[in-house]
Amino acid sequence: MRPFTYERATDAASAVKAAAETPNAKFLAGGTNLLDLMKLEIEHPAHLIDVGRLPMAAIEETPEGGLRIGAMATNSHVAADARVRAHYPVLTQAIVAGGSGQLRNKATTGGNLLQRTRCAYFYDTTKPCNKRAPGSGCGALEGLNRNSAIFGASHACIATHPSDMAVALTALGATVETLSPSGRARAFPIIELHRLPGETPDVETHLIAGELITAVVLPPPPDGGQVYRKVRDRASYAGGLASVAVVGANLALGAVAHKPWRAVDAEAALKAGASPAEAISRELEAASENGRNGFKIDVVSRLVPAAIAEARAQGRGA
């Protein structure tokens, strides 16, 4: 790691102010992804602002009947929350499908959303990567890209977003709340948090410099069954090859795009009366293969109808 300075933030307002005023500063929450990347010389902030102890770990009910999850709530605490388990089981299922117990105990809600791709070419600093070193090219494009994106990829980047939690939040239609260095708080749908790679895969979110995620808000418990299914090479402690969150009539896919992928075409088809298999094939019309990742199209086409069937069976109280 390159040398850096460290401060522990005492409140959110001063944290975002420090982030705006200090060159090359980054927020540090759980650290499970940032420190990993710093050790590999992929991230090299000059200054870390530790927001891990900000009083933003609470999970509280909203007046609308939903839940506000503080950005510093650990993944474990969110997954274990009785209200989440009872009313948003897809979120618990998604969280416990990711990482390990140790990682989930440290990783935070905000940090989980902002974790970076596990693309092997991003992780290896000897390889070109437009995300890590803009303009250097993409080693994965013609490389061993089995785990790359089938939706929304660009010629500059075919990386996927690794989060499981974010897939469930996307299907739930969660809202992200942030605080800007100017002191302005804003809230927007989670689907607007992450970007597709386009020409600038190094820019991964629509957050502005120094903007801090303060909470994620869940809408009132949705109707219908909820299911999270993740396909992976190993039974546990492994990234997904593809995953799906079903929340009533909402569908989101994981490990298939640069962002959690809301399957809007499939949702529309379902609403129009298409079968689950037809609906997902509608979504997959926009999918593209990159060498070795074509199997993901098959996985998604088979997994999604199975997950929808499971969710519908729940919905019927089966």
């Binding site: 092997a120 080693g139 490389g143 190993r234 546990s236 492994a238």
Partner: peptide
């Protein structure tokens, strides 16, 4: 990797040895 001559799995998150759940 045919272009770089390196192994694609360079760590224990990508080279998958069995874990307890397997």
């Amino acid at each position: 990797d045919p272009h770089y001559g390196s192994l694609i799995n360079q760590d224990l998150a990508s080279y998958l040895v069995p874990v307890q759940a397997d």
